[in-house]
Nucleic acid binder design. Structure first.
Lengths: 217, 217
DNA sequence: TGATGTTTGGTGACAAGGTCACTGAACTCA
DNA sequence: TGAGTTCAGTGACCTTGTCACCAAACATCA
């Protein structure tokens, strides 16, 4: 069983393509907090994540940041392929949040696969479709959603079933593209309502139900 | 001279591909305000615009709208190819703003071209790259830019060198993903400063310089 | 262990933007 | 010409963003 089986969209690759892919790609490991790509550092390979997560974020001229999306294990940094083949930088940067293991498919190999395999094309364009839809969702959220709802949503997401979150108010503000003070105020309010407990650098969800309820309203 | 020469990225297609493309695509004309694609109406073809513009916008559950980007003559609705090949809807809709003439490349032909021509792949991925960068820009603007600056920017863009703009406050608010009242207030302020004159459905820029200056700050 | 610098978070005042409810003016069209 | 519709203006109020601080928690090192 090779890594290919971790990617649903690739399981149907015909044998020839499959062995070509296995041969020409290699598995890389990058430590946490590595900048994988960014302005002036265009990617040389398409990455398929086996372990870890990559955070893709953007920084404005004024230095404010916002998280655009995350790439998780089993997914690919597919949007970077656009510049991979177009030889264009894009303005976002990708950062490994944890130690990350990934399959790297070099530009030339990627191009050949897109050319040779309808299954691979399907895989690539499906991934595109999902990411672009994600981006539309982010735009909608920023433009129209209230902050308390967005924060509740993010807390549930970051907690991921557990009850404590290790993050600073500052980091949360970057997640949502807002100011630190706004996060502090909202969290105080959640605390006042008995939903959470806070200490420096951590948040404990002591009553997650109303948070989840708020999140999906 | 065929329509192909209106698309810089396609001019280098080899003859075989070129004639295949000419043969298998057809030129379509749609009247103004046609919904070209949208939720539940996934596109069957990639469109390359010869004339007119297509507005791509999104509507939130609460019914609020925001314009994501526009496709102009000489450009392609390339993001739709993601769902074209992935058989997925996406949540945005595309509307012809004016009568629009376009080349329609059917799904199967698109797939074959992507497979057969490195030049066509380059064209497609370059277009992707540009659009995605646009989306990042939109996100940054919504998240971090002041309304007066964004509005000034939009007025200059819509004026396009001329001095009158035909648009309602409502339409401008959709352009910027904000409320009509906000636009009304901002425009009153611009008027108070002697930058514009307003009448029902039109805005005249009587002093565009300070508007342009505000736009790029 | 204490002195010092850094990171984190709290706060109040104010500005900007979004929401709501309502008004009237300008257009359309039978 | 009159009724319905579209468009724009307004004030009150709420949410969010900005600024200028402060203080507590933590890290470092002599």
């Amino acid at each position: 069983m090779s890594w290919i089986d971790q990617f649903a969209g690739l399981s149907r690759l015909p044998d020839g393509i499959r062995s070509y892919l296995l041969e020409e790609s290699k598995i890389v490991t990058v430590p946490a907090n590595t900048v994988i790509f960014g302005p002036g550092k265009s990617p040389e390979s398409l990455l398929l994540l086996l372990d870890g997560t990559v955070r893709v974020q953007q920084t404005s001229d004024a230095g404010r940041e916002i998280v655009l999306y995350r790439v998780h294990a089993g997914e690919s940094c597919v949007l970077t392929t656009a510049c991979l083949l177009a030889y264009e930088d894009y303005s976002a940067e990708g950062i490994a949040e944890t130690e990350t293991r990934a399959v790297a498919i070099p530009r030339m190999v990627f191009d050949k696969l897109v050319s040779d395999s309808v299954e691979f094309r399907q895989f690539v364009f499906t991934a595109y479709s999902k990411r672009i839809t994600d981006l539309f969702f982010v735009i909608e959220e920023i433009a129209f959603q209230r902050m308390d709802i967005r924060l509740a949503h993010k807390l549930i997401e970051l907690a991921d079933g557990k009850d404590t979150i290790s993050s600073t108010h500052q980091k949360l503000s970057v997640e949502l593209g807002t100011a630190r003070e706004v996060i502090s105020r909202q969290l105080s309010e959640f605390q006042r309502r008995g939903w959470i407990e806070q200490s420096r650098g951590t948040i404990r969800l002591i009553n997650p139900d109303p948070i989840a309820k708020l999140a999906q309203s």
